[in-house]
């Protein structure tokens, strides 16, 4: 059911546009290297490469020039400055970001233009730029996968509904929307792993907030139910797997030994729900969300009940 998406990249142009709100880049020279691709989330400070050591120069990363680099350049006589910059900018860099609104030395502009490299400037300091850009690039290059199912925000709990085709995933999602919960994605959920163990789900492209209901066709949830019925993305807290009820299958009756589903290496609590005619799955889904919320807050109904019961039985035994 899950498939890996090809390792992504973004162009310098996308970086420039999409990081505006975070780091407010402005173009110092031209857009010559706008079409170059960035394939890694790490940033690089080229200080050591400027001094001539280029053996391990990670030139394919976004280059950040801060106080150190600009300060170093100003200590060099003009011809050495030019030679130093030729060494660094001679590589096929995606772009260079100059922090603290530093005015670049004339040679920097010249050499950058010669090699067709875009120079950006930002008013922020190096640490702040590094932080915000890394965060942005992390979401771009995070591990992603696509899962067939519906993602709904139920009482603030991200619930991923999975199951065989035609088992009623979309119908459950629709029923939840009708009761005031929010749709994130239906049918195709794009999942991104953030950090070690957070999974974020979002709709993919054009099918965003549209839904297919068998027997009816495609409906637009946003126009039909309004802006309050939708949500752009949501961290996934629980997976509800719907399946047709079969006699010979054991379903969870206690809820102490939790089940999990692994997605992108993250263990997500799993509830397997048998579908029977006349059963109100929507109400059960709401209870699952509430129960998950309680568990996340350290309260486990089943465990608490069992503790009390065991104590009561011990008291009886002791007289």
């Amino acid at each position: 059911m899950t498939e890996q998406i090809e390792k992504p990249f973004i162009t310098v142009e996308e970086l420039y546009q999409k990081s505006q709100q975070r780091v407010a880049l402005s173009i110092l020279n031209n857009t010559a290297s706008f079409s170059r691709k960035i394939r890694e989330r790490e940033l690089h400070r080229p200080g050591l490469a400027m001094s001539g050591f280029v053996d391990v120069f990670t030139f394919w990363r976004v280059q950040i020039m801060g106080n150190t680099e600009i300060g170093y350049l100003t200590t060099l006589p003009p011809d050495e400055r030019r030679r130093s910059l030729e060494t660094v900018l001679g590589f096929e860099l995606p772009c260079v970001i100059i922090t603290n609104n530093h005015t670049p030395p004339g040679e920097l502009l010249e050499v950058a233009n010669k090699h067709g490299i875009t120079l950006f400037s930002t008013p922020l300091d190096t640490t702040t730029v590094t932080h915000h850009l890394s965060e942005y690039l992390e979401t771009v290059f995070a591990e992603k996968t696509i899962i067939h199912g519906a993602l709904v925000d139920v009482y603030g709990v991200g619930m991923l509904i999975t199951g065989e085709p035609a088992v009623g995933k979309s119908e459950l999602a629709l029923d939840l929307i009708e009761r005031g919960h929010q749709l994130v994605a239906d049918d195709v959920v794009q999942i991104t792993r953030l950090g070690m163990n957070r999974l974020e789900g979002a709709p993919t492209g054009r099918i965003k907030h549209y839904m297919e209901i068998r027997g009816l066709g495609i409906i637009n949830i946003r126009s039909m139910f309004g802006i309050r019925a939708i949500r752009g993305k949501k961290v996934i807290s629980v997976v509800v797997h719907l399946e047709k009820f079969t006699e010979d299958r054991d379903y969870e009756r206690i809820g102490i030994d939790g089940k999990f589903r692994e997605i992108l290496g993250v263990q997500v609590p799993l509830v397997e729900l048998p579908i029977l005619p006349g059963k109100n799955i929507t109400v059960i889904a709401e209870v699952i969300a509430t129960n998950q919320k309680m568990r996340d807050l350290g309260e486990n109904s089943a465990e608490d009940f069992n503790k009390n019961l065991i104590n009561a039985m011990k008291d009886q035994e002791n007289g």
Partner: peptide, 10 residues
């Protein structure tokens, strides 16, 4: 030892 608690009941 623990009698019929949740798990044995299950």
């Amino acid at each position: 030892k623990l009698g019929i608690h949740a798990r044995p009941a299950g």
